Simulated assay, not measured.
Amino acid sequence: MSEHVWSYRSTAGHVAGTELTGYKVEATDGGIGKVDKHSDEVGDAYLVVDTGVWIFGKEVLLPAATVVRIDVDDRKVYVERTKEQIKDAPEFHREKHLDDPAYRHDLGAYYGPGGPFGGPMA
Rank of each mutant, 00 (worst) to 15 (best):
M1E: 09
S2N: 14
E3A: 06
E3S: 10
E3L: 11
H4W: 14
H4M: 14
V5H: 08
V5Y: 08
V5W: 05
W6M: 12
W6L: 14
W6K: 08
W6T: 13
S7E: 15
S7H: 12
S7R: 12
Y8F: 15
R9L: 13
R9Q: 15
S10M: 14
S10E: 13
S10I: 09
S10W: 08
T11M: 10
T11H: 10
A12W: 03
H14E: 15
E19N: 13
E19A: 15
L20F: 04
L20E: 09
T21N: 10
G22K: 05
G22F: 03
Y23A: 01
Y23C: 01
K24P: 02
K24C: 00
V25F: 03
T28L: 12
G30S: 07
G30D: 07
G31V: 02
G31F: 00
K34P: 00
V35A: 07
V35M: 04
D36G: 01
D36T: 04
D36P: 04
K37P: 00
K37G: 00
H38R: 03
V42E: 08
A45W: 05
V49N: 03
D50M: 01
G52R: 03
G52H: 10
G52P: 05
V53N: 07
F56T: 00
K58Y: 01
K58E: 08
K58L: 09
E59C: 07
E59L: 08
E59A: 14
E59R: 06
V60D: 01
L62F: 00
P63L: 00
P63V: 05
A64S: 04
I70L: 12
I70C: 07
D73V: 11
D74Y: 14
K76A: 15
K76D: 10
V77Y: 03
Y78V: 09
Y78E: 13
V79K: 11
E80I: 04
R81C: 02
K83C: 03
K83I: 08
K83Y: 02
E84S: 11
Q85H: 09
Q85M: 15
I86Q: 03
D88H: 09
D88A: 13
A89F: 05
P90Q: 08
P90H: 02
E91C: 01
H93L: 07
H93Q: 11
R94P: 07
R94C: 06
K96P: 01
K96R: 14
H97Q: 05
L98C: 05
L98Y: 04
D99L: 14
P101N: 09
A102R: 11
Y103P: 08
R104H: 00
R104Q: 09
R104K: 14
D106V: 14
D106P: 01
D106F: 03
L107T: 06
G108S: 10
A109N: 12
Y110E: 14
G112R: 11
P113S: 12
P113G: 13
P113C: 05
G114S: 12
G114N: 15
G115K: 12
G115W: 14
G115E: 11
P116N: 13
F117Y: 13
F117Q: 12
G118T: 05
G119T: 09
P120N: 14
M121V: 15
M121A: 15
